[in-house]
Each structure stands twice: as C-alpha cells, then as structure tokens.
C-alpha cells in the first residue's frame, strides 16, 4: 500500500510542478491544487497507513489507529479549499480586467490599465472608482 501511495504522490507532485511552471493562471491554480493534494497523501503516509480501530476512549482495543494525521489533513483540506476558491476568483477577475490569463501578456510596469478590450467579448461590467485615480497615476507617469 505504501508503494502505491508513494507512486501516486510522486505523480501528483510531478504533474503539479509542471503545471505551476506554466504561464496560464488556471493551469497554475490546478498545479497548486495537485501539489497540495500530493502533500495530503504524503501526510497520511507519514502517519503510518494502518488498519486499526477507531480511537474512542473506553473502547479499548489492541490496535487503535492514530487519528492525528487525519485531523491535520482535514484542516489542510479546508485551508486549501479556501485558498483555491480565492485564487479562482482572483484569476477570473484578472482575466476580466486584464483581458488575458497569460502571465507573459500582463507584464510591464505601467501598462495601460483596464481600458484594454477584454478578450472574447466578456464585458467589464463594473468600472470601480479606483480605476480613475489609477488611470490618472498612469497618465502622470507618461509625462
């Protein structure tokens, strides 16, 4: 069983690393997700894979299994869920605002803000007031 989990962890890490090194926001998020899932499997293996009784006080048994790794994994899953959700929203917002989800296309110090046409006809629905001072600042840099 350890070997199987080790191989799966390795595959997840390899895929995750490859994806994180790519240039698209979405791929990077999938990559970090895979990396985290690989880590969770790794955590489970490090707490020993065992078939024991549920560790409940009173029900004494010869083989109680260690509940701590599972508690840790559960916490880590929740945190990872939150961060992935935030990252997806961030990537979506960036795509709407910047018109691209390619890291190469959004570089540059003072590239023209929000005025760039969004790709694929997705309209920028809400132009927040922050854009105005930002645009003014960019204009000041041009002088």
């Amino acid at each position: 069983m350890e070997y199987l989990i080790a191989i799966v962890t390795g595959v997840l890490f390899a895929c995750g690393t490859y994806m994180v090194l790519s240039k698209r926001f979405l791929k990077i998020i999938f990559g970090t997700s895979m990396l985290t899932n690989g880590t969770l499997l790794f955590l489970m293996t490090m707490g020993k894979l065992q078939r024991g009784e549920a560790p409940i006080i009173g029900a004494y048994s010869a083989s109680l299994s260690d509940p701590l790794p599972q508690a840790l994994i559960l916490t880590a899953i929740v945190i990872n869920f939150g961060i992935t959700a935030f990252a997806l929203v961030l990537a979506f917002q960036a795509y709407r605002r910047l018109g691209s989800d390619n890291v190469d296309e959004i570089t540059g110090e003072d590239a023209a803000p929000q005025t760039a046409a969004p790709a694929d006809g997705i309209a920028v629905e809400e132009a927040t007031p922050q854009d105005a001072p930002a645009a003014g600042e960019e204009a000041a840099h041009e002088h």
Partner: peptide, 14 residues
C-alpha cells in the same frame, strides 16, 4: 482596489 498591477502581483504572491 483591483488595479492591473495589484491583480498581477497578488497572483504571483499567492
């Protein structure tokens, strides 16, 4: 505030 630079840098930081 989600300006262009903020979105980009936050994503990298994340």
């Amino acid at each position: 505030g989600s300006s262009r630079a903020q979105l980009r840098e936050t994503f990298k930081y994340l």
